[in-house]
Design a protein around this nucleic acid. Sequence first.
DNA 1: CAAGATTGAGATGTCAATCTTG
DNA 2: CAAGATTGACATCTCAATCTTG
Lengths: 164, 164
Amino acid sequence: MTKRKWLSDREQVAWSQLMATVSLLDTALDQQLQEDSDISHATFVILTVLSQAPDRQLHMSDLAALSSSSQSRLSHAVARLEEAGWVTRSRCPVNKRQVHAQLTEAGFAVVKAAAPGHVQQVRRLVFDRLSPAQVDQLAEITRVLLGGLAEAGHASPLATAELS
Amino acid sequence: MTKRKWLSDREQVAWSQLMATVSLLDTALDQQLQEDSDISHATFVILTVLSQAPDRQLHMSDLAALSSSSQSRLSHAVARLEEAGWVTRSRCPVNKRQVHAQLTEAGFAVVKAAAPGHVQQVRRLVFDRLSPAQVDQLAEITRVLLGGLAEAGHASPLATAELS
DNA sequence: CAAGATTGAGATGTCAATCTTG
DNA sequence: CAAGATTGACATCTCAATCTTG
């Protein structure tokens, strides 16, 4: 036991529960996607973001930001996705420093097939359990936290809105 | 764009913000601990849980549950902590199938030194930004979700309370 | 055999160094 | 040199197989 109290009782409860929830939820989402579609949650996120972009393509750095990933991590991940034939990469003709990541038809088929099961899992584990008021509370809380994270130098496209 | 709507607008906002928040927050916590104390967040959690247990020791499976880790992951992690001299392992005399993980003095010193900076980071990024009402809302939301996760077979000691 | 825990191989993530283009 | 991205070395996690004890 620590002598001094760093967080109030309620804060401690909220914090430990949040950490546990996040950890278990992440595992649950990963398992469902792995079992039903044989892809990781990280892969699903990348493919989904790409599938929702205009022409299903994005610059690597935008894709990284939108999927909350570091550039390095994304680069490794996309290399694997390219290997699988789900994404192709090519230097941007306008600015040759940038690279376009383009979702292939095969890649799109994968997201399309995986999405329903994933959403069902999200519904079952999260939104079916929360009242409309709680959904709004959660949205507001995360909005505030994203703002704080952005201020602290941990950027988020969801906090600042636009992409280049 | 997906044709059919799987989540309502507000749900989608809450969901994408939650995913982004969790990801950025995790990175921020890891960085602070890594820079100031040269340990990962995962390591910090394990050492903290141990430091709060009676006699600063726990069976491996209890430690795994309390730190939201799989047994395998914990086993690898504790092996590294043992290497560092922060934890020792020994077969439980009562039931020789179980293993006691015991925090060493050196290990305790590490948590003690790392805790203030970590708590300050949690305060700065989370609780300083939320109203008391929001803290309660967050606690209630995560409590509900933990219950749902437990029902779905993703156990949590925080949902079911006691440890063996 | 079941429970508790560990192990090794392979997948994935991090960090620092590097490469290319503007 | 700065920006965008990649690479390689190394750390960590996952999954399945294994080991030990009851």
